[in-house]
Amino acid sequence: MTAPDTESLSVRPRPARLPLLRGQAPVVAVVALGGALGATARYALTLGWPLQPGGFPWATFWTNVAGCAVIGVFMVVITDVWAAHRLVRPFFGTGVLGGFTTFSTYAVDFRELVDSGHTGTALAYLVATLLAALTAVWLAATATRRALNRRQR
């Protein structure tokens, strides 16, 4: 990942900060832009579908499941067929989808459900999100690969 530098190879390469950031400004910028778009969409969903005290966090649930389905399609397309511009993947995959989905709200919502005595709902939310998200990414990636293979034949 880090670019080779002119240091002698006999010297154990120190984890230099510079190569990590070198040439990264455009990538960081599109990740920030994509992240802002994704987070705005997630915020809009929570406003339109507010969390009831003790209720199942549907907005965050569907946000995460939908984000996982989309990344399944996107990663197959961008790895296997689409020779996209080098900023497309950081913008959409890392930025938009990463900003849209959230792990922290998932964990804190679970905790708050347990704290307020809704342990059953908390456990259902914990397991359902995990199963639905993993199934979504798997189904989406598999279906996309099949569709692409059929088209190429």
Partner: peptide, 18 residues
């Protein structure tokens, strides 16, 4: 909602697991 929501990710977590 802003910082932690964007710092964490479920999509990359599940894709890397896959």
């Amino acid at each position: 909602t802003g910082l932690c929501g964007a710092l964490t990710t479920y999509s990359t977590f599940s894709y890397e697991t896959l």
